[in-house]
Amino acid sequence: MKKIRLLELAHARSGDKGDSSNVGLLANNEAAYEIIQDQVTAERVKRHFGSIVKGKVDCYELPNLLCLNFILHDSLGGGGSESLRNDAQGKTHGQALLLMEIDVPDDFETT
């Protein structure tokens, strides 16, 4: 097994809903989708974001888009115009998730 970052087998976009952000994580292909379904769990995402996410993390599946949609509750310091954060709308949370390291077989080819 070897470790690679999610950005080598998936792409992502994030946005805000009140004081929560969502990150849609989209696998590059079916094989990659199986890997992210297996390893990128809601608990793992919560740990990855550490102090950014004060609440829970929910995960929804969209197999038609090879996508996992994560809702990061209480992750924007109040959200919208109430937040004092530089990224008050979670615009960068997608890029942050792509930094996560995951395990893949040594012969796994990224596309």
């Binding site: 976009r13 809903k17 969502n22 849609g24 989209l26 888009l65 996508c67 949609n69």
Partner: peptide, 10 residues
């Protein structure tokens, strides 16, 4: 597909 999942909930 990135835009489809933008600001998506359930």
């Amino acid at each position: 597909s990135e835009q489809i999942v933008y600001e998506m909930g359930d």
